[in-house]
Computed example of a mutant assay.
Amino acid sequence: MKNHTSVQLVNHIDSYFYQMLSECLNKNIVVQTTNNPVQGKLTQVMPDYIVVTVQRTPFYIRMEKIVWITKSSYREE
């Protein structure tokens, strides 16, 4: 008899944080991740990740890696 195990992924979504991020869509932000800060335009918000575009390069950042976010005066040239 084979023993089958199932894997269930669980992702907690903070609706207030998601709403705040949605309000920052297409604005310049700084995102402090657990590794490094990323500064650019917030171009996409999904329940489990965001996309910050820096000089036409998209950076996909998982929500659980975000420490803090603030608005930025960054302007892409």
Rank of each mutant, 00 (worst) to 15 (best):
N36H: 07
K41Q: 15
H12G: 03
W68R: 11
I29G: 09
L9I: 03
Q19Y: 09
I13F: 09
V7F: 05
V45C: 05
T57C: 08
T70W: 00
K71I: 05
I13R: 07
R56I: 00
T34L: 12
H12C: 07
L25S: 04
I29R: 07
S72K: 11
Q39C: 15
H4G: 00
L21E: 06
I66E: 06
H4M: 02
E77K: 14
S73T: 13
Q32P: 09
I69W: 02
R62G: 01
S22C: 11
Q44Y: 13
Y16E: 14
D48W: 00
T5F: 02
H4N: 02
K65S: 14
P47T: 07
I61M: 05
L25H: 05
T43G: 07
P37S: 13
R75F: 09
N11F: 13
T33Q: 09
I66S: 06
I13L: 12
T34M: 06
V67K: 13
P37T: 04
E77P: 15
I69K: 02
I61E: 03
D48M: 08
R56N: 14
V10D: 11
Y18S: 15
E77C: 05
H4A: 01
T53M: 07
V30C: 10
M20E: 15
R56H: 12
R75T: 11
T33D: 11
T70N: 13
L9N: 06
T34V: 10
K2E: 04
T57S: 10
R62C: 01
Y60P: 01
L42R: 04
R56C: 04
M63V: 12
Q39Y: 00
V67Q: 14
P37I: 00
V38M: 04
I29K: 08
K27I: 01
M46G: 00
P47M: 11
S6Y: 02
